[in-house]
Design a protein around this nucleic acid. Structure first.
Lengths: 148, 148
DNA sequence: ATGAGTGCAAAGGCTTTGCATTAGG
DNA sequence: CCTAATGCAAAGCCTTTGCACTCAT
């Protein structure tokens, strides 16, 4: 499960900025998220990261969110799902299975991004919001749930 | 706060289908959501609906979700937010304030919808998902949080 | 009349926190 | 060395549930 060292470097720098350390557990957590390439719940993170206590998982996910390395992804239930920030993993959208709750990444396309940017501009003009990012999720049934 | 009776009719029909009753509390809840015209948290619903106990709010929101009258909207935190289903309120997208968590409705535009439909088709073809609906949320700062 | 809905309070489950210990820089 | 991070267990908080009572049809 080799992982581009540039990711670790970037994480280390962001943590150092606020006097936080890039410890072994934090590395493991980042590896887990990078390898998964899809948003994971805390139980999933704990299950796929050996010797990571639940409380450390919660605390480190929070810490990594604060430095912009990890972000929370909404599913259909209210379980938090987490993935590497788009700055590290690249911009993408999500496929959410409404039956089993699983969330998959899907790459963004230029044509779509242009349309979404237009929408952002319209909203800024009309409602006074300052739009900084967007989420585009497609909800439906994953292959497994389509063919049970 | 008059509300189009057609909404109540539609809700009544859907509840009757599964032998459930359109009680006074359920009417109040639907009124609250209709008037708000934005997704509300349970505490917000309770606060703006006189004599609605918290447990009834949770139970009725659940019931109304089961009959497709209400749906859950993801924000940035893990608090559930609820609004009338799009079938009753019309298709729209969301503006989420990343600072205060407030969620606003914003109408969908035809041009954007076309682009989103294209994206859905691509995903169905490539990843075998059956896409049934989408969510498009724009995240940023609401006017209040921009000018504190 | 009869089953669904209500309301209170208690139970549940995920998440956060306190505190003593360990380890990173 | 000195502060941050860890790990366990206890506390919190939102949400769900049990049970007796009330209401809608």
């Amino acid at each position: 499960m080799a992982l581009s060292p540039s990711i670790h470097d970037a994480v280390g720098v962001r943590l150092a900025r606020v006097d936080q350390r890039y410890t072994k557990l934090r590395r493991l957590l980042v590896e887990t998220l990078a390898v998964a390439a899809r948003p994971l719940t805390i139980p999933e993170i704990v299950a796929s990261t050996p010797r990571l206590p639940q409380s450390s998982a919660y605390r480190n996910v929070t810490t990594l969110m604060e430095v912009g390395v990890v972000c929370r992804v909404p599913g259909t239930d209210d379980h938090g799902r987490y993935e590497l920030a788009e700055e590290l993993s690249g911009h993408h959208h999500h496929l959410v299975c409404t039956h089993c709750g699983r969330v998959e990444d899907v790459p963004a396309t230029p044509r779509l991004e242009l349309a979404l940017d237009d929408a952002a501009r319209a909203v800024t003009d009309r409602q006074g919001y300052q739009v900084n990012e967007h989420r585009f999720d497609q909800l439906g049934l994953c292959p497994d749930c389509r063919h049970p």
